[in-house]
């Protein structure tokens, strides 16, 4: 199992999780690591595939408000959401700006989208005199004029953290598993994206089909490989950390430890397959996914990953059912 043990765990290709982690690090839950956030929000387990050409847009094509609200919910936060469509009427612009500013006034950056590039980012400061927001995403740390912020391409997206609730580790794990399993089984609510993307385990089949028909867009394909490979590294790490942390003696601790430990092994296999895929299809160059030899080799690796991830999901599914209704500690029949 040669998965990436030595990588930098403070960076991720999933900007939604990066932004959530960034915002959370200003709250009383700053102890949550990026690995925790990737795991508990389910982002480490996501796979959103464009079945036509493996488009570069697919990894961020999810109902952002819904997913981020649930992400924050899993971590024990209530939140606010703004997502009016462009062109945004002035009264709504003001409301969204007030939402951002009140969050910053409380000391927590607001999560937004497409500050400098079309990925999630954080607004961490404002200056009314200069009419500027201070923002950061994975590409840049800089300022955004209010007028530019108010004139988005598609929608004016902002999510802010409200209250921090004292969720127990049991609730956190159960909510996380719920999202992970629903996504893997293709049951996640997709809103306007319904039917355009294939999610979870079924995504592997769609992906292999694109390669088989030699339709993969080099650039987009490599980006999907990078995002999903990065996510699965975090998945394997999250699961083994959890298996280590649940070290108590009762039936819940024992079951979590066992199931998470088993799932971790399967996800480590997935991660290892993606290490090879990343070598073959580096982003942004992209390699040659239309080349018959490379395509067939990639399909083989994806088949291995799918088999391992299927077993991993089965463990997580079983654990999810257990977390909803613990078994008896002892059963004398």
């Amino acid at each position: 199992m040669s998965y990436a043990l030595d990588r930098d765990w403070s960076k991720t290709w999933t900007s939604a999780a990066w932004a959530v982690h960034g915002a959370v690090s200003y709250t009383d839950k700053k102890h949550l690591t990026l690995t925790d956030v990737m795991g508990f929000t389910g982002h480490a387990f996501r796979m959103n595939i464009d079945p036509e050409i493996m488009s570069i847009a697919a990894p961020t094509m999810f109902p952002g408000g819904y997913i981020l609200r649930r992400n924050l919910c899993n971590l024990g936060f209530t939140s606010c959401l703004a997502d009016p469509m462009a062109p945004v009427p002035p009264d709504k612009v003001e409301k969204v700006m007030a939402l951002v500013q009140s969050s910053i006034d409380r000391g927590i950056p607001a999560i937004s989208f497409d500050l400098f590039i079309p990925e999630f980012g954080l607004l961490y400061g404002y200056d009314d005199d200069k009419q500027l927001f201070h923002g950061k995403d994975v590409s840049k740390d800089g300022t955004i004029p209010y007028s530019k912020f108010a004139d988005p391409k598609e929608l004016l997206f902002v999510t802010t953290i409200s209250d921090s609730l004292s969720h127990s580790k049991y609730e956190m794990l159960r909510m996380a598993l719920h999202m992970i399993v629903d996504h893997a089984r293709g049951k996640e609510w997709m809103h306007i994206f319904e039917g355009k993307f294939v999610q979870g385990l079924a995504g592997y089949e769609a992906w292999m089909n694109v390669l088989k028909e030699r339709r993969a867009d080099e650039h987009g394909h490599a980006f999907n490989v990078a995002v999903i490979g990065d996510a699965r590294d975090f998945a394997a790490r999250f699961l083994s950390e959890q298996a280590f942390r649940w070290d108590g003696g009762n039936v819940v601790e024992r079951t979590v430890r066992f199931r998470m430990g088993e799932a971790a092994k399967h996800y480590a296999e997935v991660s290892a397959a993606f290490v090879e895929l990343r070598d073959m299809f580096p982003f942004p160059q992209g390699g040659a996914p239309k080349d018959p030899d490379d395509a067939e080799r990639a399909i083989g690796l994806l088949r291995t990953a799918l088999a391992a991830e299927t077993k991993g999901v089965e463990q997580l599914e079983a654990l999810f059912h257990f977390m909803k209704e613990y078994y008896s500690e002892t059963w004398i029949n």
Binding site: G22, S25, Y26, V88, P90, D91, V93, E94, M97, Q101, I104, D105, G107, I108, P109, L122, Y124, G125, Y126, D127, D128, D129, Q131, H134, K136, D141, Y146, S147, A150, D151
Partner: peptide, 26 residues
């Protein structure tokens, strides 16, 4: 939008709300 942002900023000033707050960068 430009005009309404100008008015919004003025209104905040009139209400005595903070003009500027910049947190430590993430």
């Amino acid at each position: 939008i430009r005009i309404s942002i100008g008015l919004y900023v003025e209104r905040r000033a009139a209400l005595g709300l903070p003009r500027r707050k910049i947190l430590a960068p993430p």
